[in-house]
Amino acid sequence: MRVSNNLVGILNLVTLLLSIPIIGGGIWLSKQANTECERFLDKPVIVLGVFVLLVSIAGLVGSCCRVTWLLWVYLLVMFLLILLLFCFTIFAFVVTNKGAGQALSDKGYKEYRLGDYSNWLQNRVNDNWGKIRSCLEDSKICQKLLTDNSTPAADFYKEHLSSLQSGCCKPSNDCNFQYISPTNWTKGATAALGNPDCEIWSNDANKLCYACDSCKAGLLDNIKSDWKRVAVINIVFLVFLVIVYTVGCCAFRNNREDNSYKRYP
């Protein structure tokens, strides 16, 4: 058997074995989930695992058993996957190109403005904010601040808060509220008129600023960072897929040559 066929077979055997824990992880997530937010990932993970399993079987059988049509299907799926990943990577860099936290003088944390981020991301977040807010509340991102009620103002202002904590767990800096505790603020008379978050803020631990635009902006900053990491990983994965696809094309050519030889001895 030729080298390219062996190599495609080995690579697909590895991915087939990897698909088993992926499927198992998705099933485990579906069994362990107690909230809607925790169930969000179980179906995509299972679908991904099954997809990888089927593609691996097609590549393994097509290369090792010399089933030319199956190898052709495998190469077609690989080509579409490469094209899809390439488009997604470009898209991810484009939509995450805008937006960043604004540094504040004498503050350890940053402020986040919804309008600074991509319109596409803003629309997706606004359309699904009810579910997203429920997930944020379940994640208890403000729990640390709720338990630090005795923190002096000077120490709190030096805290390095995450984008979600800064946007969802405290009022915006330009509201000019008087600090009582990390999640307890007194409204002043000099709040910024153009910031609707100043009216939305609540000292109620179940409300805080979860309905604020700053909370949505904090989430978008988090998404932006995650998507950039995913885009970089995608580039590495794309290089790997292109190499596998090239080797697969060689194996496909070998299959056709062998079939021609058998047909015309």
Rank of each mutant, 00 (worst) to 15 (best):
T96M: 08
L76N: 04
G49E: 06
T89A: 13
T35Y: 04
L29Q: 10
P44H: 11
A33E: 03
I90R: 08
I82C: 10
C65A: 13
G59M: 00
K31E: 14
W28L: 05
V73A: 11
G108Y: 12
A100D: 13
G24A: 13
L41E: 03
T68M: 04
S30M: 12
G26I: 06
Y117M: 04
A92P: 00
K98E: 14
A103V: 09
L114Q: 08
W69V: 14
S63D: 02
F79M: 12
V77W: 02
S105R: 02
G108L: 10
G24F: 10
L114H: 02
T96W: 06
T96Q: 09
C65V: 05
V55P: 00
A100V: 09
C64R: 15
L83Q: 07
M78A: 14
V94I: 15
R66L: 04
W28S: 05
F86A: 14
L84S: 14
P44S: 07
S30A: 15
L104D: 07
K43L: 14
G99N: 03
C87R: 12
W69F: 15
R39K: 15
I23E: 05
W72M: 11
E38T: 13
G49S: 07
L48W: 09
Q102W: 02
W28A: 12
V95R: 07
I22E: 02
D116A: 11
Y109D: 05
L71R: 06
A103H: 13
V95N: 04
V94Q: 11
G62T: 08
V47S: 09
V94K: 12
K107A: 05
L60F: 15
V95D: 02
L81I: 12
L85V: 11
W69Q: 10
V61T: 04
L81D: 03
L85P: 05
L29A: 12
S56N: 01
Y74S: 06
V52N: 00
T89P: 04
K107Y: 08
R113Q: 10
L29T: 06
D42S: 15
K107T: 00
F40H: 07
L48R: 01
W28E: 09
E111G: 06
C87F: 14
K43C: 09
V50P: 00
G101L: 06
N119I: 09
L41P: 10
C87Q: 13
G59S: 04
I27N: 06
G108W: 05
L114D: 04
G62D: 09
L54R: 00
G25F: 12
A33D: 07
Q32P: 07
S105I: 01
I23H: 03
F40K: 07
D116H: 09
K107P: 00
V73P: 02
S118H: 11
G26H: 00
G49L: 07
V50W: 01
V52W: 00
Y112W: 02
Q32D: 13
A92I: 01
F79R: 03
C64G: 02
I22T: 10
V73C: 15
I27T: 08
L70F: 03
I27W: 02
I57L: 14
L29P: 08
C64H: 04
Y74F: 15
G59Y: 00
G62A: 08
L70Y: 04
Y74D: 06
I82S: 03
L60R: 05
G49I: 01
L83R: 01
D42A: 15
F79Y: 12
L84N: 08
S56R: 01
V61K: 04
R113K: 13
